[in-house]
Design a binder for these strands. Structure first.
Lengths: 146, 146
DNA sequence: AATAAAATATGCAGGTAAGTAAAACACTTG
DNA sequence: CAAGTGTTTTACTTACCTGCATATTTTATT
């Protein structure tokens, strides 16, 4: 029940870019400033390109640039670009049928968590996160609590 | 960002036992009815024993039995028995320091998710889940939504 | 035009942790 | 002592993460 590094890296990159939404950023620049393994970053950025969140340009003067304004990119969109459809628990077996159908006690709980999670992700944009960061509403107990 | 199979299995087992809180259950019984690999189940049950949620007895007539009433076992307790402290994102490097300290844009979001998650888990007991199941408040779109 | 250089894109291999399975072990009852 | 049951160890498989090497595309230079 943790955010994967992949999603973490994607969010780091996008918020980094969100500070200057019109600018172009090189992989090296993102990788070094955000402490992301550059080989992995390439693959992550590819997913964001495919999803239409960013655009990539190859060659000298190449790099990545946001395709939408930060206020128009929700965390949910980023999440789904990386992880696919939001799904708290995977209760299906291979035939796409639940072995406990009608006897599952925990589904309602995870459904509730899913709803509040979607609400949170949907309601948070890149712009929100960037603003919070600039205004210092972050690093609350950064070291001790996590 | 998914519930691990381990936690899923733990919850399945406990809710199964929660229906008859005073009864003793064999591993085979739990494994077969809940579709849990029996070898893995053994290890999971051990963690619940160590945490004081259940008690185990070896030998013929052995098995597992709840140590508290279902209304006194919160989902949070189960979660922590299996996964350890609730932590949405692991933003520390090896030296237990965050590389982005003071420049992290996403921490506030995950903190909010963590809070609502803790509230949900803390406020849900085994008894709640068992009751929901018995009253049929489960399997909502079981097949399609997950 | 041709070539070199710079950047992203892609494929392959290894490490680690979760999940699974099988076997050997240890305890308890009759 | 024998049988039944939980405990522990070992090994295998898969997915996530990382690093290295190579390919592909575009710009700049000559």
């Amino acid at each position: 029940m943790q955010v994967s590094k992949t999603l973490d890296y994607a969010v780091r990159s996008l918020t980094f870019m969100g500070v200057s939404p019109e600018s172009k950023f090189g992989m090296k620049e993102i990788s070094e400033s955000q402490h992301i393994p550059i080989n992995y970053l390439a693959k992550i950025m590819r997913r964001l390109v495919n999803r239409g969140i960013i655009r990539s340009m190859v060659g000298p003067e190449g790099g990545y640039i946001l395709r939408k304004m930060p206020s128009e990119v929700s965390l949910r969109e980023v999440y789904e670009a990386i992880e696919g459809e939001i799904r708290i628990i995977d209760c299906m077996d291979k035939e796409n049928v639940c072995a406990l159908y009608g006897n599952c006690a925990q589904l309602p709980v995870w459904d509730r968590l899913k709803v509040s999670m979607i609400k949170l992700l949907e309601g948070t944009t890149l712009d929100d996160m960037v603003s919070d960061m600039i205004n210092g509403n972050n690093n609350s107990e950064r070291v001790v609590s996590n």
